[in-house]
Design a protein around this nucleic acid. Structure first.
Lengths: 207, 207
DNA sequence: CAAAAAACCTAACAAACGTTAGGTAGATGA
DNA sequence: TCATCTACCTAACGTTTGTTAGGTTTTTTG
């Protein structure tokens, strides 16, 4: 029984089903740790059928990598654009942090696959993802530069270092965050707070 | 010519040579991306010979993972213990950050292999590394708790969140840091500064 | 100097890999 | 209704994988 039309649990089909299954698996097991047979099973089809939609494994992973960057980039832009134009630096950073974390931790098989496997894929695949990456980095740098020019952010540390630390700290949450244990937004509140105000106890304290 | 005793470029031999070669390769290509034949070539021997020293690939990777954690743990302890007992929180954090980064970025094939592949190895291997991880985490938590109790660190955010963000931000430097482009210690200065004081421009500014 | 132990090599195994060729069921369009 | 097209399947290919068995060389030991 339950043997008609393959009967996988999810069995999303078609091109998108392959990408969804692959993104989930890449995120969990790394690039070389995922076989096309595993991807096919996740998508509810057989391995050979993948080649109807894609020319190679690298073609799949390239598309996933690009979609991952595009997802964060879009979500962060949306979060920041929703603010009033004169929002203070702390508000802008907070919105960006929340947008990035949401994209990564909530609807984020593609984004988290990107973070996890970018360092493992063949060089050609990495290269194909570089322009999307740089585009996001440039956007963040512009954001930080504006806040710095307005006097909201300190000026004694280069922007690229801000940005690298920001992205690094956020992406690292992927390794331990458990959506069942606590909300993404509460995490974003804490992270933005620490990043903005630091760990040190203030002398002129607040309540 | 140059054909005696295998003549590989480095050709470290023996058990340690295998581990060194494997750590370097795992760091670059991930767990499944490294074959035992590649490890053997890196160590200057043939694939089958590995089994004289190790029982399986997982046995190798287990040992590398444990050595990696042990290396950071030891270096951070040494850095902190070198400080006077009454050192302020900022000094202690700075020393810990520098120790962690040095272990990761300077003499750190084992440590960086750990960071890179921990999420990809079979569950049994991960489990075998958990106690070493927890030991390091417990040490850091104790450190942070002391500083918090002394009034050096703010108390409105749980210690585990401090620690996770700290380790995450530091480990993430592995993805982009280029030792040829800038010193580890300068990086540690900046990171400790940002983590302690935050990104925001201060009103009661300093010179 | 001979015997024993240590450290390797060679050659092969079954399984799993990415990929390809050719076939088939069901929908679509004339 | 027949031909075409889409979306799959089956079966196999050559290669690479972790691993093993058995043989050879080097080093240590008595």
């Amino acid at each position: 029984m339950a043997n008609r039309t393959a009967s996988s649990e999810k069995s999303e089909v078609g091109r998108q089903g392959i990408l969804n299954a692959a993104a989930m698996l890449f995120r969990q097991h790394g690039y070389s740790g995922v076989s096309l047979r595993a991807v096919a099973e996740g998508a509810g089809i057989k391995a050979g059928s993948i080649y109807y939609h894609f020319g190679s494994k690298d073609e799949i992973v390239t598309e996933i990598l690009n979609a991952g960057i595009h997802a964060v980039h879009t979500e962060v832009i949306a979060a920041v654009d929703a603010l009033p134009a004169d929002a203070p630096a702390s508000t802008v950073i907070h919105a960006a942090v929340r947008g990035h974390l949401r994209s990564l931790l909530e609807h984020g098989d593609y984004t988290s696959a990107n973070v996890r496997i970018f360092g493992q894929v063949p060089e050609a695949v990495r290269d194909a993802n570089l322009s999307a990456r740089r585009s996001y980095e440039t956007y963040l740098d512009g954001l930080l530069a504006n806040l710095q020019a307005d006097g909201g952010l300190r000026k004694d540390i280069p922007i690229s270092r801000f940005r690298l630390m920001l992205i690094g700290a956020l992406n690292a949450t992927l390794e331990w965050f458990d959506p069942a244990k606590g909300g993404v937004d509460a995490l974003a509140d804490d992270y933005a707070d620490i990043l903005l105000n630091g760990l040190l106890a203030r002398n002129g304290a607040k309540p």
